[in-house]
Amino acid sequence: MLIGYLLVMGYLAIGLRILRRRPAGAARVPRRFVVGATRRGWPLLIRQVVGTAVGGYVLLMAVVVLYYQGVARLGGRFLASAFTGAATLVGITLPVFFLASWVVARRRKDGAATR
């Protein structure tokens, strides 16, 4: 488990270094490939929040199914409970996550406007 964690963190660190290091003669990235370049405001915020929530739910369900069905050999009612419980959790936390994301985006916008 520790080795897996270290590998994932190492890959993420390498990815960040590659993103932050830009060669002097590197060409600019076309605007259509920049995240958020085509949409601004509410549509982008809603897309990011819903995409993050759905992606997190799908990843959680993949881990639950793979572990509990493949390793622990539990299934049936347990998996049904895991799916409905996680869906309930996402439904409860999604408005809070959306509100927190909106506050952060607004602060960044206000901070950039005052500079």
Score class of each variant (00 low, 15 high):
residue 41 G to W: 05
residue 86 A to D: 05
residue 114 T to N: 04
residue 20 R to N: 05
residue 86 A to V: 14
residue 72 A to G: 10
residue 70 G to H: 10
residue 7 L to Y: 04
residue 22 R to W: 00
residue 28 R to H: 11
residue 10 G to K: 02
residue 58 V to L: 15
residue 56 G to I: 09
residue 102 W to R: 06
residue 102 W to S: 04
residue 13 A to P: 01
residue 55 G to C: 13
residue 94 L to G: 05
residue 99 L to I: 08
residue 19 L to I: 05
residue 5 Y to I: 13
residue 13 A to N: 00
residue 68 Y to S: 10
residue 60 L to H: 14
residue 6 L to G: 01
residue 25 G to M: 12
residue 101 S to W: 00
residue 50 V to I: 15
residue 95 P to R: 00
residue 27 A to N: 10
residue 114 T to P: 00
residue 35 V to P: 01
residue 52 T to P: 03
residue 6 L to H: 02
residue 53 A to H: 09
residue 40 R to F: 05
residue 48 Q to Y: 06
residue 23 P to F: 14
residue 52 T to N: 14
residue 88 T to D: 00
residue 63 V to W: 12
residue 75 G to A: 12
residue 5 Y to W: 13
residue 30 P to I: 03
residue 8 V to C: 09
residue 90 V to M: 09
residue 64 V to F: 15
residue 21 R to N: 09
residue 17 R to V: 11
residue 90 V to L: 10
residue 32 R to T: 12
residue 1 M to E: 11
residue 111 G to E: 01
residue 21 R to D: 12
residue 6 L to Y: 04
residue 28 R to P: 04
residue 35 V to H: 10
residue 61 M to V: 15
residue 49 V to F: 07
residue 37 A to V: 06
residue 39 R to M: 10
residue 42 W to E: 11
residue 89 L to F: 11
residue 100 A to L: 10
residue 89 L to R: 10
residue 108 R to F: 01
residue 94 L to K: 07
residue 66 L to Q: 09
residue 101 S to H: 07
residue 96 V to I: 09
residue 57 Y to H: 13
residue 96 V to C: 01
residue 105 A to K: 02
residue 85 G to T: 08
residue 7 L to C: 06
residue 103 V to C: 05
residue 11 Y to M: 08
residue 29 V to H: 01
residue 71 V to C: 05
residue 39 R to P: 00
residue 35 V to L: 12
residue 84 T to R: 00
residue 21 R to Q: 02
residue 4 G to T: 03
residue 31 R to H: 06
residue 78 F to E: 10
residue 102 W to T: 00
residue 33 F to M: 02
residue 11 Y to I: 01
residue 2 L to S: 13
residue 87 A to K: 01
residue 16 L to T: 06
residue 76 G to N: 03
residue 94 L to I: 09
residue 110 D to L: 14
residue 81 S to L: 11
residue 62 A to W: 14
residue 44 L to I: 05
residue 12 L to A: 02
residue 115 R to Y: 08
residue 87 A to N: 02
residue 110 D to R: 08
residue 56 G to F: 06
residue 1 M to D: 11
residue 28 R to I: 00
residue 39 R to N: 05
residue 9 M to Y: 07
residue 51 G to P: 14
residue 46 I to Y: 08
residue 60 L to S: 15
residue 73 R to Q: 14
residue 62 A to N: 09
residue 81 S to V: 00
residue 55 G to S: 11
residue 67 Y to W: 15
residue 40 R to N: 09
residue 3 I to L: 12
residue 11 Y to L: 11
residue 78 F to N: 04
residue 88 T to P: 00
